[in-house]
Structures are given as structure tokens and as C-alpha cells.
Amino acid sequence: MTFWVAFLGITKRELLRFFQQRARLLSALVRPLLWLVVFAAGFRAALGIAIIEPYDTYITYDVYIVPGLAGIIMLFNGMQSSLSMVYDREMGSMKVMLMSPLPRPFLLIARLMAGAIISVLQVYAFLLIAWLLDIEMTAVGYISAVPAIFLAALMLGALGLFLSSFIKQLENFAGVMNFVVFPMFFLSSALYPLWKMRESSEVLYWISEYNPFTHAVELVRFALYEQMNAEAAVVTLMTAVVFSALAIWGYDPKKGMFRRQGKGAG
């Protein structure tokens, strides 16, 4: 009961903060919509997508990139969440959470899940707009994608949480965007199927193949078409577990962030 109360409290705070920051929702939606409306429109003519799983017919490029763009929403939200952890730590409000008498791993996982719930809301807002632009899935597809989107969001949130435990200052965050977010996005199946990538570079293909973000995107892609991609699910789940464990280690007072910060002002 105590744990449930705490989980609800953490989720409520994240939701309140999210709805207070309307610009955050707007920017989370504008980015993928630009890709969908502008980028995809340009590439629609240039690229034809052959019949690949899970699609059972030829599809247009804008249909192909919808799961990838859902992925980038989750990726950015994971990073945003991580950014707010660094901000919270600099502002001190992270201490409020860590002063709770509940186990620290539970608190961090609860925070992670709260962030993932926000990602799910953002993705569905995006899918709604995509639906208005005639990129439709079945009703069952929308429902069956919920756990997949949640799991993918959890994995990307865990990555953010892990990074946040090692980033000392907000200023260092730009480096994370350049060295983590963009390579992760471009070296994945989000924007183009990997067989296309293989035609131009075998090395890049294999990097993309092992990129956990590829698996997160494929998990969502298959789920949106009412199919289960077991391999993607396992990889996404395992990656989420590994990054969460590393983040919990990073926030351990014996080893983690406050120690490395070397704070001893007074």
C-alpha cells in the first residue's frame, strides 16, 4: 500500500509538471510532425518500401516512419526526463525524493515508470494526429501497441536515467544529444528499413542491427500491426533492465552521483 501511494504520488507529480509545461508537449509533437509532413513528403517520391514484415502490402514512406517517429518521441522524452533529473539534482529537488524512507531502487523505478506513462501519452497524441493525416492502424493495433510503447519508453527512460546519474551539470547535456540521441536515431530502423542501409554499408547495418533503439522501434511497429516481435521485446526488456540497474548503481550514495559531485560547500 505504501509503495502504491508513493508510486501514485510520483506519477501525479510528473503528470502535473508535464501539463504545466505545455511547450514541452508542443515541441514533443512538432518535431515528429515535421518529419512526417515535410521529410516524409519529400522522400515519399524518392523511396519505395518493399513488402516487409509486419506490413502485408506495399506501403508509403510516411506510413513506414510513423513507428520510428513514435520512437523519437520516446527517445526525446527519455532524455527530457533525464535532463529534468539533472536539473532536479542541481536544484536540489532530487534530494526530496531520495529522502523518502522507501527503497531507493523503488523510487527510481517509479520515477522511470512515471516518465514512461508520459511518453505513452505523447505517442498517442502523435498517433492521433497521424490518424488525422490518414495514417491509420486498426483499433486493435492501437490497443495492442500500449504495452509495446510502454516497454520501449521504459527502456529509453532507463537510458536517460542512467545518463543522468553520470552527468554532473546541465551544460554537459548537449554532448549527450550529439553523441547518444542522434547516432541512436539515425543508426536505427526508424527512418529507413535496415536492408536499405545494408545496400550502402555493411558496417552501419550491423551497428544499426545491434542498436537497442532499432528493437524498440520494431517492437512498436509490429505491435501497431497486431503482431508480436519476440526478439525485439526481449532485447528491449533486457536493455531496460540493464540500464535501470546501472542507473540504480549510479544513484547509490556509496558509489554514485553525490559522491562524484564532491559537494562540500559548508
Binding site: M1, A6, K12, L16, R17, K95
Partner: peptide, 28 residues
Amino acid sequence: VVFQQSTLDLDLTVEQNLGYHAALHGMG
């Protein structure tokens, strides 16, 4: 604890801030 630096969420109300703390302590 009251920390040196304010640790309140500026965009939340007083009640929401306190409610968050209470939840972290498992209070109904």
C-alpha cells in the same frame, strides 16, 4: 530536512508540493 537551496516545485501549488512529499512517505 530543509535544504539550503529551495527544493519546492515552483509550478505546483503548496498543497501539491506537500502532497508529493506525503506520498513519498507513504501517507494515505
